[in-house]
């Protein structure tokens, strides 16, 4: 009795296991294939541009103020009159997000008056060092179609950031 009972329960367990062979697959071959995310999924951020190539961000810091995780740092400066970065007087020379601290709540997107900061469905981000999750403007800003290769130099404050105007 005892031995038979054990074989039976083994068989029942294996039946469950082998039963899955004949059901539809629930896994995908990530990363070759990705599962679709919901339409309003909040993933990694981008900083958008206007059609002409100007950055939408004006450095108003409202995203920084709205962020419940305090993961955004923005510092603004005066737009150089001859090489404007954004429309108007002000642009963000520094824009950093600490992705490890971000909770992807989307409050920044909600607060943004110009639609510059947007959460995309993208969710794959890996790195080997914690510092690599501190992303700056070069990483966040969508490429300018007019510029072939994005500049490689680090983000630095402009001369007299936010200080005197030129001229």
């Amino acid at each position: 009795m005892g031995a038979l009972s054990q074989v039976r329960s083994l068989g029942r367990g294996l039946a469950t296991t082998f039963g899955y062979l004949f059901r539809p697959r629930v896994t995908v071959d990530y990363p070759e294939r990705e599962r679709p995310v919901p339409e309003r999924f909040r993933g990694l951020h981008i900083l958008d541009r206007h059609d002409g190539g100007l950055e939408k961000c004006v450095g108003c810091e409202l995203c920084q103020a709205a962020c419940p995780a305090h993961c955004i740092t923005v510092e603004a400066a005066e737009n150089p009159p001859d090489a404007a970065v954004s429309p108007g007087e002000r642009y963000a020379w520094r824009y950093e997000i600490d992705l490890l601290r971000c909770i992807f709540c989307g409050m920044c997107e909600e607060a943004c008056p110009t639609g510059a900061i947007q959460l995309t469905p993208r969710h794959d981000f890996v790195a080997f060092r914690r510092e690599d999750f501190l992303v700056d403007k070069r990483w966040l800003t969508v490429p300018d179609p007019a510029v072939v290769a994005p500049e490689a130099e680090p983000v630095r404050p402009p001369a007299g950031a936010g200080g005197k105007m030129a001229g």
Partner: peptide
Amino acid sequence: SHTYRFKARPWD
């Protein structure tokens, strides 16, 4: 003022 221009927002 020139010196404070775009340097910070009041809540900073």
